[in-house]
Design a protein around this nucleic acid. Structure first.
Lengths: 228, 228
DNA sequence: CGATTGCTTGACCCCCATCAATCCTCGTGG
DNA sequence: CCACGAGGATTGATGGGGGTCAAGCAATCG
């Protein structure tokens, strides 16, 4: 069993507020998991019972709307925590998490996290800061959804991926999102995504090889996202 | 100068986690303000420098999109805190708050709030819980914006107001929202709001007197919001 | 009591959802 | 190794929701 204090990942998220003692204690109870692409980490309406610390890979976090479609709310990648929100209020999750790539995660059971809340106020404060930042992000998403066209939102999304997700070995965006995934991020039909992507391609803004997306002109995308 | 521990309001928000000592200390530094309808409590891009505790009234919290329109993200009413989010990360506010009615608020300067963070972990944890709940709310808003029609969203909004905002003396919704405000909540044109409202009125679901909205059949609204 | 602001209604049309048909891709099993 | 089937990608046709513009009306305010 590897020790958390030896693991570099905890430096990138709220766990960095933990003391060496905290980390050692948690190491005893954590479990490592390998998760295949497409596998579900947790379901909407179910208890998560802990927190995932992502060592490798990316997952989508979504919520089903009552018309049956999934809406993707955010992507969570290497270095981040996952599942802490529902743990904070000790509720069932309102979200579902699905792996978009092969993942390596550590699972820390709820009891240990709660104990850390109680023993280490810095951890709580750090989590509060992260949560407040998340809220700021969703503010922007709401404004975009309410005020921008589908094409603008797709452009925004591509820029986000370009800036926040590591490229793969060939320089393409390092997550394999299906057309439907894109549609479920921007809140449109998959056909619209396809049409916009081919339009971008025609303009030389992106290129597509084997469904992988290469961003060629991010400045142009930025303009489209702003509404030009 | 009235004392915070004598004030019932603090029981309704995260301040309830404060000790009597905390409250007494804060009382010394807080200032009471009367705010008129339409007045701005804080601006986007400016420092808030503290937290508002709302004793009376309702305000809208909005963010300007780069097409120039305001998007209303939430309404904050009597009993709640306001402005805590930007304080948590010690940043300028990403949001603007505007009074929708006459308001009575107490302003607690930043230094005192931060001191309370440091001295009282329960306060931090409580704020974390509230923030996580807010995030859950925005999740739902995002799904609605992405997947529902404007008419459905207006119905949702009316139900929200019906359930969460006290009625006025005549039984109408107790906040005076302009047609434009409605549009800026649901992310549509004001003309659309007007058309939907008159449609609802024709169906006997609501009635309109002097621009005040009376909800007559909330079950029917619920159905519309779900998509029937 | 003008004048500014918000409300209302109508006309027009564009964006995009929906439906349908075809093509592509890839995993599976014979 | 290839045939096959299933799910995703693509393209076209069509219609409607709702954005935009314009003009008239009501209300509020200095």
């Amino acid at each position: 069993m590897s020790k958390c204090n030896r693991c570099i990942i905890h430096q990138f998220n709220s766990l960095k507020a933990l003391t060496k003692e905290d980390l050692c204690r948690i190491s005893q109870y954590k479990t490592s998991k390998i998760i295949k692409k497409g596998e579900v980490l947790f379901e909407e309406g179910k208890h998560v019972n802990g927190v995932f610390c992502i060592e490798e890979g990316v997952c989508k976090v979504s919520k089903k709307s009552n018309n049956g479609r999934d809406q993707i709310l955010l992507l969570v990648k290497k270095g981040n925590l996952l599942g802490e929100r529902s743990l904070i209020n000790d509720e069932v999750s309102n979200l579902k998490a699905t792996a978009l790539s092969a993942m390596k995660v550590c699972f820390i059971p709820k009891e240990e996290v709660v104990r850390t809340f109680e023993m280490n106020p810095k951890f709580t404060l750090n989590l509060l800061k992260k949560t407040a930042l998340a809220l700021k992000n969703t503010d922007n998403i709401i404004v975009d959804l309410a005020q921008k066209t589908a094409k603008q939102r797709l452009a925004s999304t591509l820029i986000y991926l370009y800036k926040n997700i590591d490229k793969d070995t060939e320089g393409a965006i390092g997550v394999q999102l299906s057309r439907e995934d894109f549609a479920n991020i921007i809140g449109s039909a998959t056909e619209s995504v396809i049409r916009f992507l081919s339009e971008f391609k025609k303009s030389g803004i992106i290129s597509l090889k084997k469904k992988q997306v290469f961003i060629l002109k991010d400045a142009k995308l930025q303009q489209i996202a702003q509404g030009f």
